[in-house]
Amino acid sequence: MQKAESTYPDESQKKICDKYGMPVQPPEEMVAVAVESLGQSPIYGTRVQLPDGGNVSWFIHCGEFSPSDDFYKPVHVHHLSEMLPEVLNYLCLPTGAKFIIDTAGYEDVWMAQ
């Protein structure tokens, strides 16, 4: 499993994990982002078990979800600082974690059942 470069975790990411009592798990180099949904609110993130041979465990979209096969696009984690900087603090949440955030300061983080 490839992890992103050693910039993870930073202090803000550790604080989010500590706040919700979750272990720190640095992200892989690639994430899946619904690029067409950028700019909508709220922002949803789900970290799934990394599939065998896979390189993406984070799936992130904004606004309404679409079941379309091409909804998510692979994005290098370092592009998130430009595309979707709001999610950076959540990237070290562990497998099974989910989050919802919005531009008004709403935040919810939990583990999937």
Rank of each mutant, 00 (worst) to 15 (best):
I100Y: 00
E36F: 00
V33S: 02
F65P: 08
E82T: 14
Y106I: 00
L50I: 11
T103G: 12
C62S: 14
A104D: 15
G53V: 09
D52F: 09
Q2H: 08
V77H: 05
K98W: 00
P67T: 02
S41H: 06
W110Q: 11
D18F: 07
H79Q: 15
S57I: 01
D69N: 11
A4I: 09
D70C: 03
V48K: 13
Y8A: 02
E86V: 01
L80H: 10
A112L: 10
S66K: 14
C62K: 06
G39Y: 04
A32K: 07
D52R: 12
K15F: 02
N89A: 15
N55I: 07
L38P: 11
Y72W: 04
A32L: 05
D70F: 08
E29Q: 13
I100D: 00
A112D: 15
Q13T: 07
I16P: 09
M83Q: 14
L80N: 06
F99W: 04
D10W: 06
I16E: 04
P85F: 04
Q113W: 01
F99D: 03
H78Q: 13
M1G: 15
Q25I: 08
L50G: 04
W110G: 04
V31P: 01
S41R: 07
G96D: 07
F65L: 12
Y106T: 12
Y8I: 03
E11I: 11
L50C: 06
E11H: 07
A104V: 10
Y8F: 15
F59R: 13
Y90S: 07
K3H: 10
T7I: 14
D108M: 08
V48D: 08
D70I: 10
K3R: 14
G54R: 10
D52K: 14
A104P: 00
E86C: 02
F65H: 13
V33I: 15
A97G: 10
G96L: 06
W58E: 02
A4V: 08
P27Q: 01
S57L: 02
Q2G: 10
N89W: 00
S66N: 09
I101A: 05
P74R: 07
P9M: 06
F71P: 12
Q25A: 09
F65Q: 01
T95C: 11
P74D: 04
S57A: 14
G96Y: 04
M22Q: 13
G53R: 10
T103E: 15
E82K: 13
D102R: 09
K98M: 13
K15P: 01
S12E: 15
A97N: 09
Y90A: 04
D70Y: 06
A4N: 09
P23T: 10
I60H: 01
N89H: 04
S41F: 05
P23R: 09
Y44W: 13
P94W: 02
T7N: 12
I43C: 05
E11L: 14
D52M: 05
T103S: 14
S6K: 14
V48W: 03
H61N: 12
M30N: 11
A34D: 09
S68W: 00
L80A: 07
V33T: 05
H76D: 12
M1C: 06
S81R: 15
S6D: 14
Y20H: 15
